Amino acid sequence: MRMSQRTSRPTGRASGKPAQVPEDGSATPARPTTGRSASRPGPAAGEQLLAHELTPVLQPVGHRIPLAAAATGIQRAVLGTKFTHPPGAKPTYKKITAHFDGKWFTVSGDGAQVMRVEAQSGRPYTVRPGDATACGGSKDDTYLNNPRYVGIADNGPIPEGSFQFSATQFATFSTAERLKMLPGGTFTDPFGVSLHGGDWGAGRVPLAPLKLLPAPPGCGNTGRRSGFYLHGGVMPGSSGCIDIGNDGVDQLIKLLPGYTGKIVVTVAYKAAPPQVGAVGRAVGRLTYPKKKDPSILDRLKAAAGMEE
């Protein structure tokens, strides 16, 4: 997700006290044939327009709204509902784990695969020339699901390594809340954490880094990245989160009642980066224009490659 940090906001700066660097959390439209868009049902027109990556999430997970803000009378709308275990719920599995390989997000229960959905991480537009040179890539690369750029803050996909989350850290969003977040803005999630508007989709949960593997030499620093979330949305791609789509969130939520343990998510890229066409890249530029607080005109200029 998505309009930033979906992210991905998208700000999964979670446990383990990762470095506090403004960034992550994720989008591309007509995703290539390897993308999820082909199988994702068409969302409402309004939901197709923006993704949560449009507004970078600058606040780390667990960073509550400062008391000073409350003292000044600033009030933010609270959006989302905390996941809670139904009374007396018994876990279906003794151990749940998850894995992202650069294309598929899979979940296993007691060692057997119980869920598999396409997932994305990283922005779907053309890499900056400096990044392509530093990382030994091609000027035609995109950041989407491309492990070469895992060390590039905001643009690159989630680093390889391991992360964790628990069911009770999940925040789910109603359709009305999703639409309210799409245009941007700043809200508060049900845990009191700053929530930047965007395409977070059906829900989000922070991914606390346990171990981050280094980026290719000279190609950024994964240790300085933060802002990781697992979330839904209607637009593929992210700014460093893992976007599993709304169907993925719904499937995952159904596996969680009664499960109180930590769920470890491993990331190891095996699939080749997807090919993103001209239309997908244009929508990526529209979604992530260079200008801060862009207008619709700014976005259209970005999509047309006319940014200053």
Rank of each mutant, 00 (worst) to 15 (best):
Q275G: 08
A215Q: 08
G223T: 11
G248T: 05
G198D: 07
G218M: 08
H196Y: 14
K180L: 12
G184Q: 14
G248N: 02
G192L: 13
R178M: 14
P273R: 01
G237I: 09
Q251S: 06
L179F: 15
G240F: 08
C219L: 03
P183K: 10
A208W: 01
V193D: 15
V279S: 07
L210H: 08
N246Y: 08
A282M: 12
S226R: 11
K211C: 14
M181N: 03
G232Q: 14
T260S: 04
G220V: 04
P183T: 14
G223R: 13
G203Y: 01
T188H: 10
S238T: 14
L252R: 01
V249G: 07
G277W: 10
L207R: 04
F170S: 06
G261I: 01
G198N: 09
G192A: 03
S194V: 12
L207W: 10
A282Q: 14
P214W: 15
T188K: 10
G280V: 06
L252Q: 00
T222F: 09
A278V: 10
K180E: 09
T186Y: 15
V234H: 05
V234C: 10
P274H: 09
T222Q: 06
K180Q: 12
F228M: 02
D243E: 10
P273A: 12
L210Y: 03
A208I: 08
K254E: 06
V267A: 02
G192K: 05
G185N: 13
P209G: 06
G223I: 09
C241V: 07
A171Y: 01
T175Q: 08
V283Y: 13
K211R: 07
V267P: 01
T168I: 00
I244G: 04
G258F: 02
F173H: 11
G248Q: 00
L252K: 00
D243H: 05
A272K: 04
Q169Y: 03
L195I: 13
E177V: 14
A176F: 13
K211T: 14
D250N: 06
I253D: 04
D250E: 08
I242S: 02
L207P: 06
G192V: 10
A208R: 03
V264F: 00
L182D: 13
P216F: 11
G261E: 03
P214K: 15
Q251L: 01
W200P: 05
T172I: 06
G237L: 05
P257L: 05
V267M: 03
A272T: 04
Q251K: 00
Q169H: 09
L212R: 02
G237S: 12
A282R: 15
D189S: 11
L255S: 02
E177L: 11
F173M: 08
G198R: 08
N221Q: 11
I253T: 02
Y229T: 03
L252C: 03
V283C: 10
A278K: 15
A268I: 00
G248L: 07
R178Y: 14
P190I: 14
R225M: 12
Q251W: 01
A215D: 04
